[in-house]
């Protein structure tokens, strides 16, 4: 009788049999994992047979952390799960041996540190400059990915373009879901802008105030909008120089040189799934091979489909982003083709 009870489907036996059925040969097969109890009981360790540490630890007294003056004035301990927010993916590219880099990166890091999570900061850098920046990034406490590349460039615009593609291919490779924004290191943000960016579904754009040292004019770039719909684009850039006049290349413009669309590189954000799940956004995947140049792909998508473009703020009157251009000679002697008007 004992023998036969052994075959009765007890819990372990059935578990074993279910495992049996669901195994299949193909590699990434879906196995419906049964719901896990909140705190999985860890596997029992070998029995502690000597003056066990367990006893000693149970009498553990609180360390003196309480007595320390509570250093952190902002002690808000809001319930963490109350308002889950979309992920912000902020991409920053830095110029090789730009001597203002640490200054600008530190300032941008302070701003990004104040943006409520989840935020992922992707910093792309030439390999040679990585160690010093890594040390600085470590101290910020921000969740970041530090991507480096070994190719070297003489043309800063080509370098910036390559860096953007390094960042975008990282997003594609990992299939990250969030709203992507290119934050130039000399950008100064009103924190409110990040919360607006989070609400973007497909594309969003906003005005960027372009200012330079010792210049008289302030140039504001961006769409003119009414109730968050784009109604027009700057037809003619009246100011001197175009958006990519400044040698600081991360102000390179988006959109083909077509006169209609000139979006500042920091003046827009888009849903990352466009990169790795085009059908979802009505994009035929049979688009000519853009796998190599994801950034060009994004530019084309923006230009083609303005209906999905959303303006932040709705009447795009409030400036929430400044781009401060400070001339600094990058000791790399290189030829710049100034496409001046």
């Amino acid at each position: 009788m004992g023998f036969f009870t052994g075959f009765a489907p007890t819990s372990t036996a059935s578990l074993f049999s279910r495992q049996l059925i669901s195994y299949r040969q193909i590699k990434n097969l879906g196995i419906s994992a049964e719901a896990v109890k909140a705190t999985e009981k860890p596997v029992e360790p070998a029995s502690l047979n000597n003056r066990s540490l367990m006893a000693e630890m149970s009498t553990e007294n609180q360390t003196t952390t309480e007595q320390l003056a509570d250093a952190d004035p902002k002690e808000e301990d809001s319930d963490p799960e109350s308002n889950p927010r979309n992920l912000l993916i902020v991409i920053t590219t830095t110029r090789s041996n730009d001597r203002f880099r640490e200054f600008f990166l530190t300032r941008l890091a302070h701003t990004l540190r104040l943006v409520p999570p989840p935020l992922l900061w992707i910093v792309v850098e030439p390999h040679g400059d990585a160690p010093k920046t890594a040390e600085m990034l470590r101290k910020t406490g921000i969740m970041y990915r530090h991507l480096t590349f070994r190719e070297n460039f003489t043309d800063p615009e080509a370098e910036a373009h390559h860096q953007r593609n390094v960042a975008l291919s990282h997003i594609e490779h990992h299939r990250l879901t969030g709203i992507v924004h290119f934050a130039g290191i000399s950008n100064i943000y009103d924190l409110q802008l990040f919360e607006e960016i989070r609400e973007i579904e497909v594309f969003g754009t906003w005005p960027v105030a372009m200012v330079s040292a010792n210049r008289k004019r302030v140039m504001v770039e961006g769409p003119s909008c009414r109730s968050s719909k784009v109604v027009g684009w700057p037809v003619e850039d009246l100011s001197y120089g175009t958006t990519n006049d400044a040698p600081n290349t991360d102000t390179g413009s988006v959109g083909k040189a077509s006169k209609a669309t000139r979006i500042n590189i920091s003046g827009f954000a888009f849903n990352s799934s466009i990169l790795w799940d085009p059908e979802r956004w009505g994009r035929p995947t049979s688009v000519p091979d853009t796998s190599q140049d994801s950034f060009k792909f994004v530019q084309e998508v923006i230009v083609e489909d303005e209906t999905k473009l959303r303006c932040i703020p709705p009447d795009s009157s409030k400036i929430m982003l400044w781009h401060l251009h400070i001339p600094r000679v990058i000791p790399l002697l290189f030829r710049r083709n100034q496409n001046r008007r």
Partner: peptide, 28 residues
């Protein structure tokens, strides 16, 4: 170079100065 007095913090209401919201935006 003056930014319009009376605008607060980063809210530089350039467009208001021109009085026409839908004017082509880039105004030096």
């Amino acid at each position: 170079s003056k930014f319009p007095p009376g605008s607060n913090s980063l809210t530089y209401l350039i467009v208001e100065i021109t009085g026409r919201l839908d004017l082509i935006f880039t105004i030096a």
